[in-house]
Design a protein around this nucleic acid. Structure first.
Lengths: 263, 263
DNA sequence: CGGACGATTCGGCGCTCACCGAAGTGTTAT
DNA sequence: ATAACACTTCGGTGAGCGCCGAATCGTCCG
């Protein structure tokens, strides 16, 4: 706490918010962190290409982010694999994204436009479901009385039963404990989606039962036919969020190299 | 979402995390925001003095912070009153502070040392109680089974009953969209304290019943005799967190102008 | 009305930092 | 071994930004 040293001068420790924020205050570093929100591990080279900077520049950024505790790294041979340090980190990033101003960006290819459309439709948000699908789930659960808003957002008894019926244990000890529900402000729609332990359990369940499948090496989710059936039956979701996103405008040129990570 | 304009070029909107983070990436701006975590309104001049910069510099910072949506301002005559924009803002700040690295700072006066000591002991964190007292409350509630930690922090049925017994009606079904129970990583002790709607309701209750009183124009809280009785009886808190903080080392020189806001 | 006061605008200074390319290190593949 | 590869180190460059002081504007008080 407060320490008096030999010089009769005293020092104390304060959290250096500015230092932490400075790590995210750079476009390139922010892009790297947001890319890692898919919960996966990327190599330094992949991130450099994704962010559009030289490998040497990416190295410097990764050094800072790792030293700052935002990223965890693992050296494997000549490769450097990094990922987000933890769920706290991911949570802060999503919260920041929810509060951040919008910025217009150019879309440089058809592939990127499609990628973007899919991201808005359904994606992972570290360990739960976000995008239009995530928002629709949260709203349907609220409508059906599975989530209550009386004391903020909370799982109702009906909601706990609903989870158990799905085979999700953990909201299970609802007799004594209320499952941990958090919300996460969605940056695509500025509406809340389900996060916290319940959100994570729901996502895990959806993956295991193949209601959704992950596109390789990206945060994008696709709803399967089984998922459509399940989401319709259990939550009454509309086809709008269940059907695959239509491909972008008149697809004249099919292939084009995305400046982003190949989806 | 995605828009195709006349030039057959397309743009989209992305949350600009870097821009938001850049607002907090400066020591002075971060200090201003942290000062405003007391939930009160400060004038531009007060903040300039507090942060140790020229008034003109403070003006520029306030312009940025207001434009960025972090601060709300109100012009009254020749004065500019400013406060945090909302509870989301406060939450993000506290979260960042909890994850931020520590930095050693000089303490320049006895008054500042005492101020600091008191801050660590008990303070407001926007709308709830933080510091050693806040942490002790959260831990006592956990020990007594009022809070469960199975999936992060959650209110148990016993906890809900405990609140009602206090006369806190369901945290007040205020139109808050905030989670029922949230935790807030305390930057003084790196342990969790109680936040969210329940934390806010508890703080309001403690204020109304004069369990704690606020020092004028600061975030510092003092526990009253009534508060000691209540916290001992209801939560079994030890005197360590209930008794007033001892004044700092041999108080030779009583008065000294604090570079911080007069407490 | 005139002076004190709080806040603002503006020009200019100095520092920090994101970036690159070229060269270097260590690992894997041939 | 030799080559290809992934990453790192380092020097140099340019832009951005935080800061101040001086001048100014608008408000409040005597």
């Amino acid at each position: 706490m407060i320490r008096w040293d030999a010089d009769h001068e005293s020092t104390a420790e304060t959290p250096d918010v500015a230092a932490l924020a400075a790590l995210l205050a750079d476009r390139t570093r922010a892009a790297i962190c947001i890319a890692l929100l898919d919960g996966g591990t990327w190599t330094a080279g992949e991130l450099a290409e994704y962010a559009g900077v030289a490998p040497s520049t990416a190295t410097e950024h990764l050094n800072l982010l790792v030293a700052g505790g935002l990223l965890a790294e693992e050296r494997r041979g000549r490769r450097r694999h990094v990922r987000l340090a933890g769920s706290d980190t991911a949570e802060i990033l999503e919260n920041l994204a929810g509060l951040a101003p919008y910025r217009r960006v150019r879309i440089r290819s058809l592939a990127e436009a499609n990628h973007r459309r899919a991201l808005h439709h359904a994606r992972t948000c570290y360990d739960h479901i976000a995008g239009a699908l995530g928002v629709a789930i949260a709203e349907a659960m609220t409508e059906r009385g599975l989530l209550g808003r009386e004391h903020g957002l909370e799982l109702t008894d009906a909601g706990a039963a609903w989870l158990v019926a799905l085979g999700i244990e953990g909201g299970g000890h609802a007799s004594t404990h209320r499952a941990h529900v958090r919300t996460c402000l969605d940056w695509t729609s500025r509406r809340q989606h389900l996060s916290g332990a319940v959100g994570a359990a729901l996502y895990r369940h959806a993956l295991e039962h193949r209601w959704v499948i992950r596109a390789p090496a990206s945060r994008i989710l696709a709803v399967t036919e089984a998922g459509r059936v399940a989401f319709r039956a259990r939550l009454g979701l509309s086809d709008e969020v269940l059907m695959p996103t239509p491909a972008a405008p008149p697809a004249r040129d099919r292939a084009e190299v995305s400046p982003r990570r190949p989806g």
